[in-house]
Lab assay of single mutants.
Amino acid sequence: MASQGTKRSYEQMETDGERQNATEIRASVGKMIDGIGRFYIQMCTELKLSDYEGRLIQNSLTIERMVLSAFDERRNKYLEEHPSAGKDPKKTGGPIYKRVDRKWMRELVLYDKEEIRRIWRQANNGDDATAGLTHMMIWHSNLNDTTYQRTRALVRTGMDPRMCSLMQGSTLPRRSGAAGAAVKGVGTMVMELIRMIKRGINDRNFWRGENGRKTRSAYERMCNILKGKFQTAAQRAMMDQVRESRNPGNAEIEDLIFLARSALILRGSVAHKSCLPACVYGPAVASGYDFEKEGYSLVGIDPFKLLQNSQVYSLIRPNENPAHKSQLVWMACNSAAFEDLRVLSFIRGTKVSPRGKLSTRGVQIASNENMDAMESSTLELRSRYWAIRTRSGGNTNQQRASAGQISVQPAFSVQRNLPFDKPTIMAAFTGNTEGRTSDMRAEIIRMMEGAKPEEMSFQGRGVFELSDERAANPIVPSFDMSNEGSYFFGDNAEEYDN
C-alpha cells in the first residue's frame, strides 16, 4: 500500500510504541512475548500442572481467558453494579484439565481477579502490559475465525453469508486497541457500523446529549479505520460520505453494504499476525530463551520457528480426527482463516481442507461434555516452508469459486491468482447506482469489472525454506488448481455463540 510509510507498523501498534527502528520493534515485541511466557509459567505453578498438562491447549485457553477477564475493567465495573446470582464479580476462573488415573478430569478453578492481575503485572515488570493482553485477544479471535462461520451475524446486519472472507476479527472485544483495529476485516468494521446506525434509528437519543457526542466521535473513528483499509480513492470518498452524514440511517447502511461487497474484489488491507497460545510461549521462556534479547516478529519467520520446536497437546472428542484438529489450530496460529487453501497447503506441506470436510468441533470443551471418553493427542503445528504475512489485500483475480465463501483475504505475501467468483459478486451490483453516491458507485463498479483474471497478485513473492531466515531465496510455489480455494466452501461450520 502506498501510504505504508505514514502508518505505524503493526509491531508498533502491538507494543504501543512511538516510531521505533526494526531492532527496537523486535525487542519490544519480544518483551511482550516474554511477559506472556513468564505469566503462563507462574500460572502453571499456581495450578500445580504437570509439564504435559501445561502444554494442553484447553488449559492455555482457560488461563488466557482468566487474565483477560481480570483486566476487563468495563465488564468488571458492570458486574459490580449489576450483581447477578451466583456470579462473584471479583473472581474469575474456568475449567482446568488434569490427568488422573490414566483419565482426563475437569476441575473448575476460581481465583481472585486481583490475584491474577498481581501475577500478570509481576510477570511483566510491574506494568499492565496491555500489548500482551491484546495479543491474547487476537489469538482467540484468530481461533474463532478458523472455527466458526459468522453466517447468522452477517444475515442479521443485512449482509450476504458468502462475504465471510471479510469477517476477520469479528469476535475481537471493543477494547483491543490499535492492534485489534489493524486485524479487523472490512466486513467486521461494516458490521460494527451498521449495528451502531441501527441503534440510532431505533433509539432517538442515541446521537443526542453528552453521551451522543461520545457516540458520534466513536462512529467517526470507526469510519476512519474502515476508510484506511480501502485502497481505492472511490471507496475512500464513499467512506467520507458515510462519516460526514448528519443523521446516519438506511442510506448509510446501503452504502456500507455496497462497500463491503466491493471489497470482495477491490480488497481492503487487513493486517495478519501470528499470535500463538500462551502454552507455546511459556515452555520456550522456561527453556531459557530470551525473546527480548533475541527479538521477535509476528509477521516473519519467528512464529514458524517457534511452532517448529513446540509440543502442544489437545483434548480430542471420541469421533474427532486429531489431524483435522491440528489443521484448525495451525490455521489459527498463522492467522489464515480466509487465505486461499492452495497457498496454505503449499506452505504447510500437507493438504489443507475446507472447514466442512474437517471432523472436528471447536477447541474448547463445553462444561456439560462427558470427560470419560476424552483422549488427548499432539497437535501437528509444523510447516514445510515459511512466508511473510501481508497486510495488503493483493490485486484481484477471477477463479472458480464456491457456493460458500466467494473470495479470499490473503494472509501471506505469496504470488498467486486470487480466487473470487466474479459473476456471483457482480450480480449483486445491478441497477442500484442512484442517489448521492452514484458517481462513486459507478466508478467502483467500473474498477471491479476491469479486474483481470490473468493478473498475478504479489508478483514474484515466494515462500522460503525454514533454514532461509533472511528470506534470501524465494520459492514461487505451484498450486494444484483442481483443489478448492475457499475454506468455508459450501460450508456447515458451527455458528459462533458468545
Results as ranks from 00 to 15, higher is better:
residue 2 A to E: 06
residue 5 G to S: 01
residue 8 R to D: 11
residue 11 E to L: 01
residue 15 T to M: 06
residue 15 T to P: 01
residue 16 D to H: 05
residue 19 R to I: 10
residue 26 R to L: 05
residue 36 I to Y: 10
residue 43 M to P: 09
residue 47 L to S: 02
residue 55 R to N: 04
residue 57 I to V: 05
residue 76 N to V: 03
residue 80 E to A: 01
residue 85 A to M: 05
residue 87 K to V: 03
residue 93 G to C: 11
residue 95 P to S: 01
residue 99 R to K: 14
residue 103 K to C: 01
residue 103 K to A: 13
residue 118 R to S: 06
residue 120 W to V: 04
residue 124 N to I: 12
residue 130 T to F: 03
residue 150 R to G: 13
residue 154 L to I: 15
residue 160 D to M: 10
residue 164 C to R: 05
residue 167 M to R: 13
residue 169 G to A: 14
residue 169 G to T: 03
residue 172 L to T: 15
residue 177 G to I: 08
residue 181 A to P: 15
residue 181 A to H: 05
residue 184 K to S: 02
residue 194 I to R: 14
residue 196 M to N: 14
residue 200 G to V: 12
residue 204 R to P: 13
residue 210 E to I: 05
residue 210 E to A: 15
residue 221 R to T: 14
residue 225 I to T: 15
residue 234 A to N: 12
residue 234 A to R: 01
residue 236 R to M: 05
residue 243 R to H: 00
residue 246 R to Q: 12
residue 257 I to E: 08
residue 258 F to S: 06
residue 262 S to V: 09
residue 263 A to I: 09
residue 266 L to Q: 10
residue 267 R to L: 08
residue 269 S to K: 10
residue 274 S to H: 10
residue 277 P to Y: 10
residue 277 P to E: 10
residue 286 A to M: 09
residue 287 S to Y: 10
residue 293 K to E: 02
residue 294 E to K: 06
residue 295 G to C: 10
residue 300 G to N: 11
residue 309 N to Q: 03
residue 317 R to F: 11
residue 318 P to N: 13
residue 326 S to Q: 11
residue 327 Q to D: 12
residue 331 M to G: 02
residue 338 F to K: 10
residue 343 V to P: 07
residue 356 G to P: 10
residue 356 G to V: 03
residue 363 V to S: 06
residue 366 A to W: 13
residue 371 M to W: 04
residue 373 A to F: 02
residue 376 S to N: 03
residue 377 S to N: 14
residue 384 R to C: 00
residue 390 T to Y: 10
residue 396 T to S: 03
residue 404 G to Y: 06
residue 412 F to R: 03
residue 424 T to E: 04
residue 431 G to P: 06
residue 437 T to L: 07
residue 440 M to K: 02
residue 441 R to G: 13
residue 442 A to R: 00
residue 445 I to A: 01
residue 452 K to F: 05
residue 457 S to M: 04
residue 460 G to F: 02
residue 464 F to G: 01
residue 468 D to Q: 10
residue 469 E to D: 02
residue 487 Y to E: 11
residue 489 F to H: 10
residue 490 G to L: 11
residue 494 E to V: 09
